[in-house]
């Protein structure tokens, strides 16, 4: 059973990402904060007897479900269609120039300097915009797999789908982001 301190530390460690993740989905700061708060409460009230090691997976699952519940409550066609039913991403050009990218991108690109701070902030905004444009399942798979650093099986469990679907969603998400960001002239 997770102690009070363990629970507090865990929540402190995940709250920022949880908020951003929720914000990418619902695109409303207040709603994202409500979703994170509800998720925290559900975790504390219903899973307080679980060991600390199980908290990350439980919280990701709760956050996903709470976000889904928020969309259900909206009951608007736009919310539903734009976030849940657009899985028709084309497979054409899936493998375009990842290899080209990986061979040409210098490793030192992430280093900050006084000159590029502003442009990096702009880049960040554009990355977030493109992330929000992704289909919901692709975005969810991408964020869980790479940002929350869950493995494929854990991501599949959190999303309630197969591991193959996770791989497909992740691949399409990365491909779509790279295409869009490259079109904007952003090289990561």
């Amino acid at each position: 059973m997770a102690s009070e301190l363990e629970l507090a530390d865990f929540l402190k460690g995940v709250e920022k990402r949880a908020f951003k993740r929720s914000l990418y989905h619902v695109r409303d700061e207040e709603a994202a904060l409500d979703i994170v708060q509800d998720s925290m409460m559900k975790l504390a009230e219903h899973y307080a007897d679980k060991p600390a090691g199980e908290l990350p997976m439980l919280f990701q699952r709760i956050l996903s479900n709470t976000t889904l519940d928020w969309f259900r409550r909206q009951k608007t066609k736009n919310a539903l269609f734009s976030n849940f039913n657009d899985f028709e991403a084309s497979d054409s050009g899936e493998d375009m120039d990842f290899l080209e990218f990986s061979s040409h991108t210098p490793d030192t690109q992430m280093s900050e300097s006084a000159e590029n701070t502003v442009s990096q902030a702009q880049n960040l905004q554009e990355i977030e915009q493109e992330l929000k444009k992704l289909p919901a399942r692709q975005r969810e798979a991408f964020l869980l797999r790479y940002w929350e650093e869950l493995d494929v099986s854990e991501t599949a469990a959190a999303m309630g789908c197969s591991e193959g679907s996770v791989k497909t969603h992740c691949s399409r998400a990365v491909h779509a982001l790279m295409t869009a960001l490259k079109a904007r002239g952003i090289h990561i």
Partner: peptide, 27 residues
């Protein structure tokens, strides 16, 4: 080159989420 492709995707994704980490730290 399929393995290299997957690896390249992973690398690109890691760099992207590194940017997102910075975003989360600037709330």
């Amino acid at each position: 080159s399929a393995t290299n492709l997957v690896r390249a995707q992973e690398i690109y994704a890691r760099r992207l989420v590194h940017q997102l980490d910075q975003s989360a730290d600037q709330l």
